[in-house]
Nucleic acid binder design. Structure first.
Length: 220
DNA sequence: ATCCCGAGGG
DNA sequence: CCCTCTGGAT
């Protein structure tokens, strides 16, 4: 995708959705951090169902520790990888109190030092809470970037670096959420809805593609 | 490279 | 049945 095409792509995203936001439900930086940790290999919809109950009982790190690993597990059993996540949420809450006065640190190294928090989760927190121009590359953005030609890369780190180079600065703060939402609802993994894609004419996969071939049941 | 791991969609 | 979902730790 050319430089001009990329600028056009984000201009359209911005016009269609001036203030894109996460679909995770949270009432504090702490709750967003926990929700993002829980969202690994899970849908936002499923995470929200679990966190409604979880945050009602444990809205703060102190309450989460009191609830304990067994209590957390009960609330998040409907989410995949729940044993690891329950352990991480409690341990992370303990470390937030011990190292950061119970606050979420605005620092990538401090964030990734927490259990269950890797580079992608840290980037989401830095962007969503602290409004830093980070690019968190998840399954949606990795797929969409490579498919459309927005930013090619064999792994998430390469795609992140390419996006930071190619996305025009004025769009960088909101690019993450625009791309996530586009990937979730339009440029989906299996059966992309190209017929209602806002940037269809700019997409490399119009003629050279990893999409299902024309004529197949999955072709849109 | 492997494991973790439930819910929803097709 | 199989694939996908805002990955991280070993």
């Amino acid at each position: 995708m050319s430089k001009a095409a990329i600028a056009e792509m984000f201009a359209r995203f911005q016009a269609a959705n001036p203030n894109p936001e996460t679909e995770l439900e949270y009432a504090s930086p702490y709750q967003l951090l926990v929700a993002v940790v829980l969202s690994a290999q899970a849908t936002d919809k499923g995470v929200n169902i679990a966190t409604r109950k979880l945050f009602a009982e444990a809205p703060t790190p102190e309450a989460m520790i009191t609830l304990g690993e067994a209590g957390v597990t009960e609330h998040i059993k409907t989410i995949g990888l729940f044993r690891n996540k329950a352990k991480n949420v409690v341990a992370l809450s303990y470390l937030l109190l011990e190292r950061h006065g119970g606050e979420v640190p605005a620092d990538r190294d401090a964030l990734t030092a927490l259990p269950g928090v890797g580079r992608k989760t840290a980037n989401v927190v830095l962007n969503t809470i602290f409004r830093q121009p980070t690019m968190a590359v998840d399954t949606h953005i990795f797929r969409l970037a490579n498919r459309t030609g927005l930013a090619a890369g064999k792994n998430v780190d390469a795609v992140e670096a390419a996006l930071l180079r190619r996305v025009p600065k004025p769009y960088l703060l909101d690019a993450h959420h625009w791309l996530i939402l586009h990937g979730r609802y339009v440029c989906t993994a299996r059966k992309p809805a190209c017929d209602r894609c806002l940037v269809r004419d700019l997409c490399n996969s119009r003629d050279k593609t990893d999409l299902p071939p024309p004529g197949s049941p999955d072709h849109v």
